[in-house]
Design a protein around this nucleic acid. Structure first.
Lengths: 355, 355
DNA sequence: ATCCTTTAGTGTATCGTTCTACCAAGACCG
DNA sequence: CGGTCTTGGTAGAACGATACACTAAAGGAT
């Protein structure tokens, strides 16, 4: 096992003290002459020096790692989410330590503790049912937290947050169906344990109210997830729900699904019953995962711009870690849009083509 | 920022030396009386002691983190892969540090170096084009490597490996189509940069040879990926490829896709051209991702048992890290099976139902 | 009473960096 | 010429846990 190159070997080769090498490493270049600096840099590259993060962390209490706690990487949406975070973090020289929370608060708490003991001081939480006071305790301890998809109000909390306006999303999806002429619209979801899901439902309700359609509770289907995670089984739940809703006496002609996985599951459920999409039933999803465009028919859905969201989220988190940013919680809400494809049409008709 | 509890605070409260606390922490319980042990444990829980991994790592050179380098988490197969690794690692008290290699050797190398400097001494590589000698260099340095989906021969290398027999997989997929009566069978892939892909192709060829069908190079479509990653765009490539293959003068009646994403993309391509699945063209995939079962029609595919594979892989990697296992490279090949759903049927016929 | 073992611990150097002091030597000023 | 800055460094004590090398006390054998 080859020994790692240390700062003192570099110092010895360059003929300076370890302090000077450390100064260079930490950007305090004003404290040395250009010649010295060049000598050190030469020595570093000759020896192939690689900083020892453990030692550095022991001293500073910081490590260039950000934690990421999400419900489940097995869901393609979260896969893309992780990808986006990872990319943004890497651009700033940070690594990502991953945790699957499985929407289980206890497990998320365990992760957070473990992350802390690894010297991680910045964590991004995906959509989660974490109780606010638990996060708060972590924040008091010095952890920087960035929350995705949880409703926060500016000044209301000490945490930064980023999300799409889920209410608007739910409204847009429902509104699109309404504009097409649908009157009976179903809502398909799994356990409503996160604020984002509740907000999407709220948007759905508001759209119906604005269209002066009486609310029918029988049209809202909230599936139970056996494991409680409600992610991998999303498609399965969507399928079951679509079957339940469509086999009712007065089936809906349009379905708003809580996310694309549910929507794609609803495709299967509709097919099981012999319904064609969109001729017999229109379906709209949420997220715009890659598969949405490949599905048959391509899925109309609400798009979340995760790449840009995560770039911003990771940016402000790292700014906080590095002390560049301080001050009150920064809460951003990103505009959202519907992308219309071919899973929606006028009730009992041929596909609706956007142009 | 609350100070972390250290081993000496625990020692002070329990009235022992730090050495004794350390001994307890490291399982050397034979070196102390039951009473002392109980006092220390009480003190630890009273203070809420959490070990500082940085300090420990600085001393021991080890850290309870395993690295995971995969092409792209955005692909649902790799998402499930990460999930499986994470679960297995967590059960042993390890965390996972993630890296998206993007099938780019330079980037993978950068990751590996970075992982090393974080004290990570065990890494799992997903399917990758890494040159063997580069990995070898890492191994010499003391890194324990576990390679997924790369063909290794027992005794041939110093690295552990796990994979499915991709040749058999390609054979099984092709054979299934042959058994159904297909004679013109296309092969759909992206860049053949990994051994697993080449092996699947080999299996396809062998099946045709065994069936005494003359090999027609026009039936093999190898797409180019614009970014080189060939993952996110898998479905897109599959779509293009299916269109190319199916619009030929003598189109194939069956298609073997390099993985499920390509297969699902091929669904879209076939539809673009007005082909029905499986009546006009049969399609078989590889991996058995969650969406395979939800697709319309449900996809016949070769299943990779990733959960059990990763449990074994993580197990032997950690055994190596902890010194429990040593000796020659451990290469395991896991049996594979085809799961027949409704995307395959006899040529020009109604769906084939397994029972 | 002496010597040897065993039990139950402890003292302390060490891992690789950082960072607060501190300092030497020249430049500048009046 | 003495004093004060400025520039370009250096010394060395941390950070928290580990593990090697000890040892004090008690028990057993002779």
């Amino acid at each position: 096992m080859a020994k790692a190159v240390t700062i003192q070997e570099v110092a010895a080769l360059a003929g300076v003290s370890t302090s000077t090498v450390s100064n260079l490493l930490n950007g305090r270049i004003s404290r040395m002459s250009a010649a010295t600096r060049a000598r050190i840099e030469l020595a570093m590259s000759q020896l192939g020096y690689q900083a020892n993060h453990a030692a550095r962390q022991l001293k500073t209490g910081q490590s260039p790692i950000i934690g990421l706690v999400i419900p489940s990487v097995a869901n393609p949406f979260w896969g893309a989410f992780v990808q986006a975070v990872e990319e943004a973090a890497m651009a700033r020289g940070y690594q990502v330590l991953l945790g699957n929370g499985g929407r289980d608060p206890r497990r998320e708490q365990r992760y957070a503790e473990s992350l802390w003991s690894h010297g991680v001081r910045g964590v991004i939480f995906g959509s989660s049912p974490l109780s606010l006071d638990y996060i708060l305790r972590l924040v008091e301890r010095g952890l920087h937290v960035m929350v995705f998809d949880r409703r926060l109000h500016e000044g209301d909390t000490v945490m930064d947050g980023i999300s799409v306006d889920n209410r608007v999303g739910g409204y847009l999806a429902t509104r699109h169906l309404l504009d097409l002429g649908h009157r009976r619209i179903g809502f398909l979801s799994g356990p409503l344990r996160t604020s984002s899901r509740l907000e999407r439902l709220e948007g759905y309700r508001n759209a119906l109210i604005d269209a002066e359609i009486r609310h029918d509770p029988a049209l809202i289907w909230v599936g139970e997830s056996p494991t409680g995670a409600g992610d991998v089984e999303g498609a399965e739940i969507g399928r079951t729900g679509a079957r339940a809703l469509l086999s009712a006496e007065h089936p809906p002609t349009g379905l708003v699904a809580i996310n694309d996985l549910y929507a794609l599951g609803a495709y299967a459920g509709a097919h099981d019953l012999g319904f064609r999409i969109p001729e017999d039933v229109s379906i709209v999803g949420f997220d715009d995962i890659t598969m949405a465009d490949m599905a048959n028919p391509p899925l109309t859905t609400i798009k979340q711009p995760i790449d840009s969201m995560m770039q911003s989220a990771v940016g402000t988190l790292i700014d906080r870690l590095e002390g560049t940013r301080s001050g009150p919680a920064h809460v951003v809400t990103v505009p959202i849009e519907i992308v219309v494809r071919n899973s929606t049409a006028q009730p009992g008709s041929r596909p609706y083509r956007p142009d």
